[in-house]
Every structure is written in structure tokens, then in C-alpha cells.
């Protein structure tokens, strides 16, 4: 990996390595002793990159990126939150086991420097089960899940595309201070708010201490985005349909009737 880093002409390498018997994120400078680099523990590198980028304002950063990191970075670049010209991605293909765990349909990075691309996951049994439920049963399911929420805000803090400086949802307007759990508004507004950015990396679900199946919720919203707007996030060119509602063809006449 050190080789890849140097080949790509970067000043920094953002990767993960062995530290204190654990696997830790690490930002290496050119010439630093790399230690034992690891690629098997899926830290959300795009999220860590965003944090690092606040402080490292100059020089090129090489990032070990899975396909979902790559897509998240594209969303951030598109919004001018990251500078593509300062980034070099070192492509890491997820293992078949990781692909299965994330029910990932898009596991292969555009350039593969490490690993071998596994087959994308087929049907998502969890989403299928939910779609089979009646609307009221489905609502019941989510209410039961959200009742477990203990307001750690790990889903927003670890999300690579939750980039607002201050999360308005964390404010007491949506998560009243008296409330644990925080109420449906928090989860549902968040679900919609991220509709045109979410790359289905699953970090929200992995970070959730109480196992709320947030990735299933994300996949269902993404499916809607695809069906309603033919939109898939994770591409630096494609514009979000949610930004274009007032452009294009004039609205139908009956849109004026209230």
C-alpha cells in the first residue's frame, strides 16, 4: 500500500493499521513509518477524510477507499466540500463476506488496487420482507425499532454524507430534550434529508448500538429515488433531482389550484 501511496504522488496517506491490538485510522505523512497497514476492518474512510480535511488544507491525500467511500467522496466533491484535485483514491475491493453483510449492489471500486471484486449482492431479503408488509404493519415495525433509539447520534456523526456543520435535527425542535427515544421526526426527516446523497454504505446501521436496521430504511429510500426520479447518488456529475424541482418544463395548470 505504501507503494500505491508513493506511486500516486500524494503527500499524505489516510489508511488503517494495527495499533495497540486494534485497528486504527491513521494519517501518514510522506516518509512516516507505515507500521502494519490493514484493509480488513471497514472504517468509513470518507467520513474520516472529511474530518481530516478540515485541518489538512494543503497537499495531496491518498485515501484507501472502498466503492462506497468513492461514491460518498463524489457526493462531497459535487458540493464543493472536498477538492477532487487534492485526492487520490486507492481502490479497495470489499470481501465477499463484507458485500453480503452490507447487501451491497455496487461493491467494486472504479480502480482496484487491493483485493478482488466480489459479486454484487442480489435480492435484499430484509427490504423485501418490509415491502411485503402492509403499510400499517411497516409503520409498527419502524416505531418498535425507533423506540430503542438512545440518542447517541452515531448515525449522523458517522455518516459520510451528513456534512452540515450543525445538525438541525439534533436541535431540540426535532429531538425534544425530554425525549428518549427522540421521536419519529428525527429518523424520518433524516431519511428524506439524505435521499439524494446516501450511498448505502451502511455505516449508520453498523454504528447503531441497538441494531436499528437503518441500512434497510436507506435502501428503501434509494429505491424510491431510482423509481421516481431515475436518480442514483454517488456520481460527481449527476445532479440531484431534489435541487431541480422549480426548473425545466412549466408546471401543469392544475398545480395552481389549491
Amino acid at each position: 500500500m505504501r507503494l500505491a501511496f508513493e506511486e500516486k504522488g500524494a503527500d499524505y496517506l489516510l489508511a488503517t493499521r494495527d495499533e495497540h491490538g486494534n485497528v486504527a485510522p491513521v494519517l501518514l505523512k510522506k516518509g512516516d513509518e507505515p507500521g502494519t497497514l490493514r484493509v480488513d476492518v471497514p472504517y468509513q474512510m470518507a467520513m474520516i477524510l472529511t474530518k481530516v480535511n478540515k485541518f489538512v488544507k494543503e497537499g495531496k491525500i491518498a485515501v484507501v477507499a472502498r466503492r462506497c467511500d468513492e461514491r460518498a467522496i463524489a457526493e462531497l466533491v459535487k458540493r464543493d466540500l472536498l477538492d477532487q484535485s487534492r485526492l487520490n483514491l486507492i481502490g479497495l475491493a470489499c470481501s465477499a463476506e463484507q458485500v453480503k453483510e452490507c447487501r451491497c449492489t455496487d461493491p467494486c471500486p472504479s480502480v482496484v488496487d487491493f483485493g478482488e471484486c466480489a459479486e454484487p449482492s442480489g435480492d435484499d431479503a430484509s427490504v423485501a420482507r418490509l415491502l411485503d408488509m402492509s403499510l400499517s404493519d411497516r409503520l409498527g415495525f419502524w416505531i418498535a425499532q425507533f423506540r430503542k433509539c438512545n440518542k447517541c447520534f452515531g448515525c449522523t456523526l458517522n455518516c459520510p454524507v451528513c456534512f452540515c456543520d450543525e445538525c438541525l435535527l439534533e436541535d431540540k425542535t426535532f429531538t425534544p430534550e425530554k425525549g428518549i427515544p427522540p421521536g419519529l421526526a428525527f429518523h424520518l426527516i433524516r431519511a428524506i434529508h439524505l435521499a439524494d446523497k446516501c450511498v448505502e454504505c451502511g455505516e449508520c446501521e453498523r454504528s447503531c448500538p441497538v441494531d436499528i436496521p437503518l441500512l434497510s430504511l436507506r435502501k428503501m429510500v434509494s429505491q424510491d429515488m431510482k423509481e421516481l426520479f431515475d436518480y442514483v447518488s454517488g456520481d460527481s456529475e449527476r445532479r440531484s433531482p431534489l435541487l431541480t424541482t422549480l426548473e425545466g418544463d412549466p408546471m401543469e395548470d392544475d398545480a395552481n389550484v389549491c
Partner: peptide, 13 residues
């Protein structure tokens, strides 16, 4: 920290 046996990559507020 994702590999920590106690927290397994989660934390509280």
C-alpha cells in the same frame, strides 16, 4: 473504535 471488544464501534452521546 470498531475492533474494541466492549464498544464494537458504537458509543453513547
Amino acid at each position: 473504535c470498531k475492533t474494541d471488544e466492549t464498544s464494537k464501534g458504537s458509543l453513547c452521546i
